[in-house]
Structure formats: C-alpha cells, structure tokens
C-alpha cells in the first residue's frame, strides 16, 4: 500500500462564519503501479484531498499513511514525504521564479539534499525527459519561454527529484486541445518508466477514460464511488453528479441508438478498433 487514507475529514476556517466542510469521512487505498483519477463537480473537495497527501494541509481528523510515513504523527517527516510524492498544481508555470531554467529545476533537488552536481545532473535528465534540450535552455530566464515550454519546465522541476508518486491537480487546465494531448502523452510516457503511481485530478472525462484504471468520484466532500472508468461511464449516472461523458462513450451511446452495438470502449484507440471491427464484420 503506497497511500492509505482512513476516515479523513477536513473543515476550512473552523469556528468562523466562513466555515466550510470540505471533506467528510473519506477512506481509500492506492497500491503501487496504479493510475488513479479523481473526479467531481467543482468545490467537491478534490484539491483539498490531494493537498492532504503531501502534507500541504495539516491533517486534523482521520489517518493518512503515504510511503510508510504516518501523517497523523506529531512531527511527520515532511521532507521525505514531499520528496517521494511530487505534486503539480493547476498552472504550474506560475511557480517558476529563478533567474535561469537550470536553477529553477534544481530548486527541488537542492531542497531535498542533492549535492550541486547531483542536482545539475538531475535537472539535465528531467529537462530532456520533458522533451526540451537542456543545454540550449539552461541559461535562459524561465519567464521568457512560451506558455507550453514554461509548463514543461515546471514539470521538469518536479520530475527532477524523482518522486515515486506523482499527483497532478488539473494538469491540462488552460491548454489548447493540442497542448492537452501533448501533455497527456508526456504524463503517460512518464508513468511506468519513471513514476510508478499517478493520481490525477481532472474535470476532463476524456483524460480519465484515456489514462486511469481507477476513478474516485467526489461529491460534496464525500467519496461517492471508488470504481473503474467503464463502470462509472457505462453503469452509473454520471450526469447526475455534475460530470460529463467522455467523447468515446458518447459515440458508443449514439451508435447504440442507431442499433449499432459496440463493446464498451473507453480509449480512442479502442473505439477506432471497435469501429473497424464492426465495419469489417459487416463487410464479411
């Protein structure tokens, strides 16, 4: 068990008129190698939940264990925790601050106790991993890069210290469709080769259908379902939860109305394969 959350509750601004219960009795477990999506309407508590996982929000009620670190302990080892569980926020490019790309990417590794040369090596690896050429960008100011490049550098800044788990809170927000696709394939390529476990918060159901093996559905601070994408999109009433359907599932449904029955596919690749198989079957 990489991540274990038990009876987690959280209230913002407790005992003030702004009091807001953001999480109610949430429990789940994530095992090594999984890729988990977290979905839910806006304000349902997704960000609050993932911010608990690397100790950005102090645990008040419940129990969390991440990478064998007990967050309910009096003084959990936050450095070790945050080194093991990388986190990328919405618009990660807004966190860039250093005067050069190299020193920005090295910020994390140096904080986590890498030596100067190790950090430099880690930065080179990470920048190349996100598809940029380290030697040509290392001395440039991160602020003069394009939006997409900034985001890549921000991702490199997290990959550089080699976290085991990667948490992404709306990684594709504000990107155009091509940028989204690029970003997602980047994340998909990292999973497995570099990072064993990915937890993604997303409003985009296409992303969930494409990349997650498991989905947690949040509703009003509660964990409503802990299920698979095909169960969620084909069995449960997704629209009632304020969520949309992925395009692939919509196409399958539309075709069903026209009496074209396809298997319950989720990814685009599978949909194309199913359509081709269907057409092939008819021609034969």
């Amino acid at each position: 068990m990489l991540v274990e959350v038990k009876n987690l509750s959280y209230v913002y601004s407790e005992k003030t008129p702004f009091e807001k219960q953001a999480l109610k009795d949430v429990s789940f477990v994530v095992d090594e190698g999984q890729s988990v999506g977290i979905v839910g309407a806006t304000g349902s508590g997704k960000s609050t939940l993932v911010q608990h996982l690397n100790g950005l929000i102090r645990l008040k009620n419940g129990k969390i264990t991440v990478l064998d670190i007990d967050l309910s302990a009096k003084k959990p080892d936050l450095k070790a925790l945050r080194k093991g569980i990388g986190m990328l926020f919405q618009y990660p490019e807004y966190q860039l601050f250093a005067d050069t790309v190299a020193s920005d990417v090295m910020f994390g590794p140096l904080n986590f106790g890498f030596s100067k040369t190790e950090a430099e090596e880690a930065a080179r690896r990470a920048v190349n991993m996100v598809g940029m050429d380290y030697d040509s960008v290392k001395d440039r100011s991160p602020l003069e890069l394009s939006g997409g490049q900034k985001r890549r550098i921000a991702i490199a800044g997290v990959l550089a210290y080699r976290p085991k788990i990667l948490i992404l809170d709306e990684p594709t927000a504000g990107l155009d469709p091509a940028g989204k696709r690029e970003m997602l394939s980047l994340i998909a390529s990292l999973k497995g080769e570099e990072i064993s476990t990915v937890i993604t918060v997303s409003h985009n159901m296409d992303e969930i259908a494409e990349f997650s093996q498991r989905v947690l559905v949040m509703n009003n601070g509660k964990l409503l379902y802990d299920t698979t994408p095909s169960e969620l999109f084909y069995r449960l009433d997704v629209e009632a939860l304020g969520l949309s359907l992925p395009h692939t599932v919509r196409i399958v449904r539309l075709l069903k109305e026209k009496n074209i029955i396809l298997p319950e596919v989720l990814t685009e690749k599978d949909l194309v394969a199913a359509l081709l198989a269907y057409a092939g079957g008819r021609n034969a």
Partner: peptide, 11 residues
C-alpha cells in the same frame, strides 16, 4: 497557491 507549490518542491 504559490506557497503550496514551493513547499511541495521542498521549500
């Protein structure tokens, strides 16, 4: 938000 992002990177 910025504080959280930098803390996550070990600041």
């Amino acid at each position: 938000k910025i504080m959280m992002a930098q803390k996550a990177r070990g600041a």
